[in-house]
């Protein structure tokens, strides 16, 4: 399962950006675009949190950037 997390997270990112692209250049309805982006968000956070969230923090992670 652990090995699958990056792939699931990547699928979440694809679902986040592909629908707006298809909406702009194709004819994906706006409501469907929003639903797919929401699904992408859920997939990303569900998989990326256990995958990336356990990485050791760097001292630079507390720097404020605008």
């Amino acid at each position: 399962m652990k090995k699958l997390l990056p792939f699931i997270a990547l699928a979440g990112l694809v679902l986040t950006i592909a629908p707006p692209l298809i909406h702009l250049f194709g004819d994906l309805p706006v409501k469907t675009t929003f639903h797919l982006m929401t699904a992408g968000m859920v997939l990303w956070f569900a998989a990326a949190t256990p995958w990336l969230g356990r990485r050791k923090l760097e001292p630079t992670d507390t720097e404020v950037q605008i």
Binding site: I17, W44, G53
Partner: peptide
């Protein structure tokens, strides 16, 4: 900081 690290790639694409 951990949550921000997780969220940032997704936020860029949003």
């Amino acid at each position: 900081a951990r949550f921000a690290n997780v969220a940032s790639p997704w936020m860029v694409l949003v």
